[in-house]
Amino acid sequence: MRKKQSVTIYDVAREAGVSMATVSRVVNHNHNVRPDTKEKVLAVVKRLNYRPNDVARGLASKKTTTVGVIIPNVTNDYFAALARGIDDIAEMYEYNIILTNSDGNSQKEIQALNTLFSKQVDGLIFMTNQLSEMVRKELQTEHLPVVLAGSVDAEQQLPSVNIDYQKAVYAQVNQLIATGNERIAFVADDLELAINKSFRIQGYRDALAHAGIPFRKELLIEARDGNYQAGYRLRHRLVQQQATAAMVSNDELAAGVVNSLTDHGIQVPDQFEVVTSNDTKLTEITRPSLSSITQPLYDIGAVAMRMLTKLMDNEQLTTNNVLLSFGLKARQSTKSREV
């Protein structure tokens, strides 16, 4: 078989009877071209099926108009909602997205970073469960603009977009206290993650202290895999600790908890209340449906991408750490506060 010949900018210029510089201005949407010339060039571009070489353009302009996005789990509704916001704003500012999955593993994050660096991306949106020192050093080496989305940097060295997780958990645990709960478990996949250790657990402890309820370390409960099955297996431990409510760090984990309780004859919310943190679609499809902290997930992604466009254009950010508003959504897994 004959190998297909690629069409070059030279071919388009020759066919259209114009200079290569004119073709370049047309395909790069430079308005400094006469309308009739532009139409002639575009007609040739269409006829020859010419596609500009993004790599070559990047070498010439020192910009690839490409952004790398590292996501811990592409199947997780929380991160998928953030990615949608990122993609829409990237499209608005004419950036392409390269999406990579890291499985929340530091070694895979390093591999993903090296892959994106080799593609000469102009900037990075980083979503991670935990920003490791290894990853931090890798980011510092490349000197690329980086923004964290829905991920915390305990050292506050990198720009980020989040909600105030400490205040959100404080508000949600207060509601559990208001319905008569004193033995409230805090459930997370990893209690040592910065988002839990430095923010959520502090909000949990603040709410207990404000109500005069003693903090009990045994009610900090870890479910290492952080998935539905891990949540389902926690029922025995929650009952053993005589908990009457649980504040859970993610929706899949919370779905496992609530289904295990109901499957084993524990009535939710009459005998046990469950609240969760991310308000993804899982909260609405469990029975009973899950009360949750609400987050503007799409907006977190969109704002992070807008911040990155500013950094890539060498603009100054008005603030490095953006906190968007949160809410509390009551559903069937909690009692009414009048009870």
Score class of each variant (00 low, 15 high):
residue 331 R to G: 05
residue 131 L to Q: 09
residue 45 V to H: 01
residue 177 I to V: 15
residue 67 V to Q: 08
residue 9 I to C: 05
residue 99 L to T: 08
residue 259 N to R: 14
residue 159 P to Q: 00
residue 179 T to W: 11
residue 243 A to F: 00
residue 40 K to L: 06
residue 7 V to E: 11
residue 45 V to C: 01
residue 93 Y to F: 14
residue 220 L to T: 05
residue 172 Q to L: 12
residue 281 K to D: 14
residue 316 Q to N: 10
residue 138 E to R: 08
residue 47 R to W: 07
residue 126 F to C: 06
residue 47 R to Y: 09
residue 230 A to N: 01
residue 128 T to Q: 06
residue 65 T to H: 07
residue 156 Q to N: 10
residue 251 D to E: 08
residue 112 A to Q: 03
residue 246 A to M: 10
residue 325 S to H: 00
residue 290 L to D: 15
residue 173 V to N: 07
residue 146 V to W: 02
residue 36 D to T: 14
residue 55 V to F: 13
residue 75 T to Y: 01
residue 145 P to E: 05
residue 330 A to C: 04
residue 265 G to Q: 13
residue 243 A to G: 10
residue 287 R to S: 08
residue 233 R to W: 03
residue 99 L to P: 09
residue 120 Q to E: 06
residue 85 G to W: 05
residue 300 I to N: 02
residue 178 A to H: 08
residue 284 E to S: 11
residue 168 A to V: 02
residue 252 E to T: 03
residue 182 E to D: 12
residue 292 S to H: 00
residue 300 I to V: 15
residue 302 A to I: 12
residue 305 M to I: 11
residue 62 K to Q: 15
residue 184 I to V: 04
residue 228 Y to I: 03
residue 84 R to G: 03
residue 316 Q to A: 12
residue 277 S to C: 14
residue 303 V to R: 11
residue 148 L to E: 00
residue 59 L to R: 07
residue 281 K to F: 11
residue 141 T to M: 09
residue 294 T to K: 10
residue 331 R to M: 05
residue 216 R to L: 13
residue 25 R to Q: 09
residue 70 I to N: 01
residue 129 N to S: 14
residue 253 L to E: 05
residue 205 R to L: 07
residue 11 D to R: 00
residue 24 S to K: 01
residue 39 E to A: 12
residue 4 K to H: 12
residue 302 A to F: 12
residue 33 V to R: 00
residue 157 Q to D: 03
residue 142 E to T: 07
residue 133 E to Y: 06
residue 112 A to P: 03
residue 156 Q to H: 08
residue 87 D to N: 15
residue 204 Y to W: 08
residue 120 Q to T: 02
residue 248 V to A: 00
residue 286 T to N: 11
residue 128 T to C: 14
residue 151 S to Q: 07
residue 229 Q to R: 11
residue 143 H to R: 10
residue 218 E to N: 14
residue 171 A to W: 01
residue 172 Q to A: 15
residue 75 T to N: 10
residue 233 R to D: 15
residue 119 K to S: 09
residue 198 S to N: 15
residue 43 A to H: 05
residue 335 K to E: 14
residue 311 L to C: 02
residue 288 P to D: 07
residue 242 Q to L: 10
residue 217 K to R: 07
residue 231 G to L: 04
residue 43 A to L: 08
residue 42 L to C: 05
residue 200 R to D: 11
residue 227 N to Q: 05
residue 90 A to L: 13
residue 248 V to C: 07
residue 161 V to E: 00
residue 113 L to V: 06
residue 73 N to P: 11
residue 126 F to Q: 03
residue 52 P to A: 09
residue 315 E to I: 09
residue 243 A to H: 02
residue 178 A to Y: 03
residue 186 F to Y: 14
residue 27 V to S: 04
residue 67 V to E: 05
residue 269 P to S: 13
residue 96 N to E: 01
residue 78 Y to V: 09
residue 60 A to S: 11
residue 215 F to C: 07
residue 249 S to M: 04
residue 82 L to I: 14
residue 54 D to W: 00
residue 37 T to C: 02
residue 258 V to C: 09
residue 123 G to R: 05
residue 107 Q to V: 13
residue 77 D to T: 02
residue 66 T to P: 10
residue 280 T to G: 15
residue 117 F to L: 11
residue 145 P to T: 00
